[in-house]
């Protein structure tokens, strides 16, 4: 079974994507070629942008099952309306009107169970696409891409996660920003969670919210401080008070930010940053081997 790591952060733009793709790149090069990166930031999937030579293996539509009512069988009893917690069904007996509003439907299936006349059936409606890419020389990247205008991001994340392969050693989930249901869905299957933060008041505040969430879920976590050197020391103070492990600190370098901006991040990595990634990965390997019970990964 693969060791599954989720990279998350409450605040946006702290460097989740940078960290996730660097871990993917370095692990695939130095530790094991059997690694998969799953981009769960389905609203704005960016991981693949940094791999212009990626080869597309498969693309498939992701769908949500939307129920429809067959008016010829409907008796307008309104039982489905009573069972629908999301107010998605409109039945108006005097005028013989029965319809389900797909944008309110959560596809829970309650109306189908409720209907005693077999008048409700489901058909798929597209909410996005799921793609899988091969990366040269090693590794697989999977991504979910939400259809514009769809609000079903959590369902799409659930489906993208089903792309997880069994015959890899590591899986990295790149989470969306925030602390609400899409993040919970992303980290739910992870064995270990990396929280990425920046040493600023916004970074700290959102980090606290995310730590609270991860502790509620009951998963082990460690923190990477990105853009170290900017801002203040309060993130460090908080982490030491809470006895949270700092996996590493990536210093802020303007030239490196420019390289990231351009999309080429694996070339000319400053030595100090490379050393940080190496030490972070070594810490993760210890975690993975204590999880696996064996010790065949090394950098």
């Amino acid at each position: 079974m693969p060791f599954k790591i989720a990279v998350a952060s409450g605040k946006g733009g702290t460097g989740k994507t940078t960290i996730a793709i660097n871990l993917f790149h370095n692990i695939s090069k130095e530790v094991t070629p059997k690694i998969q990166l799953i981009d769960c930031d389905v609203e704005e999937p960016n991981d693949i942008l940094f791999f212009p030579d990626a080869k597309l293996n498969s693309a498939q539509p992701a769908t949500q099952s939307i129920p429809t009512i067959d008016n010829s069988k409907c008796t307008y009893c309104r039982k489905c309306v009573e069972w629908c917690e999301f107010n998605a069904i409109v039945v108006i007996p005097p005028v013989g009107f029965a319809e389900i509003n797909s944008s309110l439907c959560h596809s829970c299936g309650a109306c189908i169970v409720a209907c005693e006349y077999g008048a409700i059936s489901e058909k798929p409606e597209e909410i996005g696409t799921i793609k899988q890419y091969s990366i040269d020389p090693h590794g697989i990247i999977s991504e979910g891409r939400l259809k514009i205008g769809s609000a079903m991001q959590t369902l799409l994340i659930k489906q993208v996660k089903q792309q997880a392969l069994d015959d890899v050693d590591f899986i990295i989930f790149d989470a969306p920003p925030g602390t609400s249901c899409p993040v919970v869905e992303t980290v739910a299957d992870a064995d270990y969670i990396i929280l990425v933060t920046e040493p600023t008041p916004f970074g700290l505040y959102d980090l606290k919210l995310t730590v609270e969430l991860v502790r509620d879920i009951g998963k082990p976590l460690g923190v990477i401080i990105n853009k170290a050197g900017l801002g203040d020391h309060k993130v460090h103070d908080y982490l030491s008070e809470e006895h949270i492990e700092i996996l590493g600190e990536i210093p802020y370098r303007r030239e490196y930010a420019a390289q990231y901006a351009k999309g080429d991040i694996f070339e000319k990595i400053p030595g100090e940053i490379k050393a940080q990634y190496k030490s972070i990965i070594q810490k993760l390997l210890v975690r993975s081997t204590s999880y696996e019970g064996d010790n065949h990964f090394k950098w």
């Binding site: 946006g12 733009g13 930031d41 389905v42 609203e43 704005e44 939400l146 514009i148 205008g149 769809s150 609000a151 991001q153 969306p176 920003p177 925030g178 899409p182």
Partner: peptide, 8 residues
Amino acid sequence: PGIGCAAI
């Protein structure tokens, strides 16, 4: 951030 339910 994003383009999902909160942004909508």
